[in-house]
Amino acid sequence: MEPFGNPAVSIVVPTHTERRWASLSRTIRSAQHQTYPAGEVVVVVDHNPAMATRVRQEFPGVTVLENAYARGASGNRNTGAFHTRTPLIAFLDDDTVAAPTWLQGLIMPFRDPRVVGAGGGIIPNWEGRRPRWWPDELLWAVGVSYTGMPTSTAPIRNVWSASMIVRRDAFLAVGGFRTGFGKLGDRNRPEDTELCLRMSAVNGGHWMYVPDAVIDHEVPRSRSTFAFLMSRCYHEGRGKVQMAGLLPKEQKLGAEADYLKRTLPRAFVRGLAHALMGRGGFHALRAVTVIAAVLAAAWGGGVEALAGVLEPTAD
């Protein structure tokens, strides 16, 4: 790797539909206006040639590629990452806006050669009001930082691909994101968590979370409903069971266990206590929402586990 004083970085932005054109445009502009400038901004379009042509026409300073793999975000990101030649590769989603100092903040942990990757704080940009019944501990369901994460720069098991930076050599060593295991249609599998675990396992490296390296993440009204949250928790439960099946037996999902044993019970107790103290009925709704989220995730995990048992006898 180059001396830390000036490591070159590329930014990869996956996209797939022109319905997100306005937000993609904001993402690209934010990537181009970093205080620590990227050597290359790469936009990868997922099997949409017309959109790829439009990006080339309207953003001539950007490298535009088309997904070389099967449809899905994992192949999209890999296409861009494998194209780059810089020692560091950063990722942004097409519905985010990076603060000007985002990239500068994310490269700082790489002073430590043991760091294989880092991620930054993600702030929700709600379309309309945030639902008052939504607990802070469940904000991960809309892809943003949540209560329970570190509040200052610290080691972390995994980060999100919406705001991620990796060492190129470590990323290539594991073959990048696992294609076919990610977000596609109504399936929501944790391809970024799975990548983080594989990269850490290669040489004992670790990840860092930099909450001050922030991006805004759009949250549309369609994702501000109780039905969406329950669906998201259900699919997260299924995805975590699938991910566990890909991991070595000795590699446990300790972060998930701690979240269930500590973070969510505290959220429930706090919501209930605040409601009983007369601080607002929405606190009671937050407590109930925590229970409902756990049940939805358990249901999804149970469905996936049962599917795994039945699959060998499907013939």
Rank of each mutant, 00 (worst) to 15 (best):
D94Q: 08
V174T: 06
P220A: 03
A73E: 11
P150H: 05
H33K: 09
V55D: 11
P312S: 04
I123E: 12
A173P: 01
I107G: 02
I89K: 02
G237Q: 08
L247Y: 13
S224I: 05
F228Y: 15
W160G: 15
A296T: 05
R20W: 14
W126N: 10
T15L: 07
W160N: 14
R130E: 06
S25Y: 08
R221V: 11
V144H: 07
N125H: 14
M149C: 08
G121C: 03
P150Y: 05
R114L: 13
T193M: 15
W21P: 01
R223P: 00
E218I: 10
P190R: 03
A52G: 15
H206I: 02
A98P: 06
L276C: 10
G105V: 11
R54K: 12
I122C: 06
S152T: 13
S222E: 12
G300P: 01
A307H: 14
V309F: 11
V241L: 07
W134A: 04
Y146P: 01
I215W: 03
R279E: 14
V290Q: 10
D258M: 14
A298I: 09
V44W: 12
L247C: 09
T179I: 12
D95K: 00
H33P: 00
E236F: 13
A31C: 07
A68M: 04
G271R: 02
G300V: 03
L276D: 03
L276K: 11
T263F: 01
I215S: 00
W102A: 04
V13R: 08
R168I: 02
E66S: 15
H283E: 10
L139K: 07
A90G: 02
V9C: 01
I215E: 00
L138G: 02
H283Q: 09
G205H: 10
V115H: 11
E304H: 04
L24D: 09
R85Q: 08
E250C: 03
